[in-house]
Structure formats: C-alpha cells, structure tokens
Write a protein that binds this DNA or RNA. Structure first.
Length: 253
DNA sequence: ATGGCTTGAGTGTCAAGA
C-alpha cells in the first residue's frame, strides 16, 4: 500500500501536475494540503476520471485539504473534535482498513505572533485528539504539512534558522509529543541521503541551491511502521514546470 | 537587504506562505 502527502499550494494551479503524478506513481492514497478551493469548485470529475475517489474540505484562498483514494473512504471527519477552528486543516478517513489523518498544520508566521500561539494551541488539540484516534484505530497514518522541521539535520542552515518558526523548541516539543503517542517518523526508519528536504522557498534559487527544510511528514503507528518498506521524498516533482514549493513524501507499506 | 517568489483576491496592490 502506497501512501503519499503533498502540499500542492493551490490545486487549481497544480491539477495538471497532480494528474500526471498519479499516472506515474499510482498511489493508493494521496493526501493534499493547501488546495485553496471551496468544495463547490473542487475538480471531482477530473479526479474520478483518473481513477480516484476524492474527499475534500476546502475554503476560499487559504488552507484546504483533500484525500484521493483508490478504494472508498468511511468514517470521515473534517475537523479536530471539540476544537473550534474556521480554518480547513484536517481530514480523516478510514481507507482499506487504515485510519488516514491528513493535516495542514498552521505555519505560525513568527514566534512572537498571534499566529504562533494559534499554531501551538492547534498542535495541543491535535495531540489530544490523536491519542484517542490511536486507541480506536491501531493502524493509523498521520500525513501532511507539519510546518515543523523535527531536528537540525532537517534544516539546510540550522544556525540561520535557530529559534525561528518551524524549528523553535516549542514546535519541536509538539512533534516529539506526537512520537510519544507511539507514532514513528517513517522517513527515519531508513537510511536516507543527507540534506534531504521536502520544501524549498521559491525565492533566491533555493531549490537549485538545496536550501530546504523537511517539514512534510508521514508518521505511522507501530502496527504500520513494522510493515513499512520505504519512505522517499520525490524531489523530481519540484523540478517540473510551475511546481509546488513542496515535494511529495511517499511511503510503501 | 524584512528583500528575494508564488498564489489569490481582483484590476491596484496587499496578505500569506515558510
């Protein structure tokens, strides 16, 4: 079973790349973030024609998540229960017996901003909810744009980024709390090339210079981690015409 | 160099991303 997460930075702009990518990589589940589309505008017909069933929870301009799957989804949730949030950042569903949780964690902007406090509160709510989800669903995968680089080796220049948003101690602590629930960072289950990242700024030729961060992740419960065969970041997708600034992260179970 | 690109809104130019 192949599970993938990809922040597409506007599905309207990126739909051709997504359709091409599906043909080449044939995932069983593709979790998308930053679709930036209201549900009434979601390209459901194109996704269905490509052989995938879409779930989506979107809003105008910002945020928005979607799950494309080969087989039908059940038990769909579009928000963290008991956490009031107008922003569309969560989509969970059971697909082929696996609990799939697709998240777009708030960026946080800067550590001294209100948005950073929202990010930390959001992560608190996520951890509390996932504890319950994992008790209900032993086979669980948490995929998405976490907007957290867990360790310095996930950052191209840790000195420049020290203490900044995406790498600050409180964000990394929230990431560790997810691991402490019993989730494994699938990328670190395997030998990986050094300086492997999932996001590169559009500016300053950051991709060509590999000035990136690993902020998109696939976390697996123990029952799934033990059968995980690989975790690969598809850097090729970042080289296409008009790419997303994020690359897909793919796991094979 | 608080810039550098990209997207969405909307048609001038700003907010937001990370």
């Amino acid at each position: 079973m192949k599970l993938v997460t990809w922040n597409v930075n506007s599905l309207k702009v990126r739909l051709p790349q997504v359709l091409d990518w599906l043909v080449v990589h044939q995932p069983d589940v593709l979790c998308l973030q930053e679709t930036k589309q209201e549900d009434q505008n979601f390209p459901a017909a194109e996704i269905l024609a490509a052989g995938y069933q879409p779930l989506f929870s979107g809003q105008k301009t910002y945020n928005g998540v979607a799950i494309l799957s080969r087989t039908p989804a059940t038990e769909v949730i579009t928000a963290i229960p008991d956490f009031t949030d107008p922003q569309k950042r969560v989509l969970a569903a059971t697909i082929a017996g696996v609990r799939i949780v697709d998240i777009y964690v708030p960026n946080g902007q800067s550590v001294d901003s209100d948005k950073f406090q929202y990010k930390l509160a959001w992560l608190d709510a996520l951890v509390a909810w996932l504890g319950q989800e994992m008790a209900r669903y032993p086979e669980l995968a948490l995929l998405g744009d976490f907007n957290i680089a867990p360790e310095d080796r996930d950052v191209h220049d840790p000195k420049v980024w020290e203490g900044q948003v995406l790498v600050s101690p409180s964000e990394r602590e929230a990431f560790r709390r997810l691991l402490q629930l019993g989730l494994a960072d699938s990328f670190r289950l395997f030998e990986q090339p050094e300086k492997t990242y999932s996001w590169w700024d559009y500016r300053m030729n950051a991709f060509r210079r590999n000035m990136g961060m690993r902020i998109d992740h696939v976390l697996l419960s123990a029952a799934l981690a033990k059968s995980c065969k690989s975790c690969v970041i598809d850097k090729e997708a970042r080289k296409t015409e008009r790419p997303s600034d994020h690359a897909p992260v793919m796991v094979e179970l």
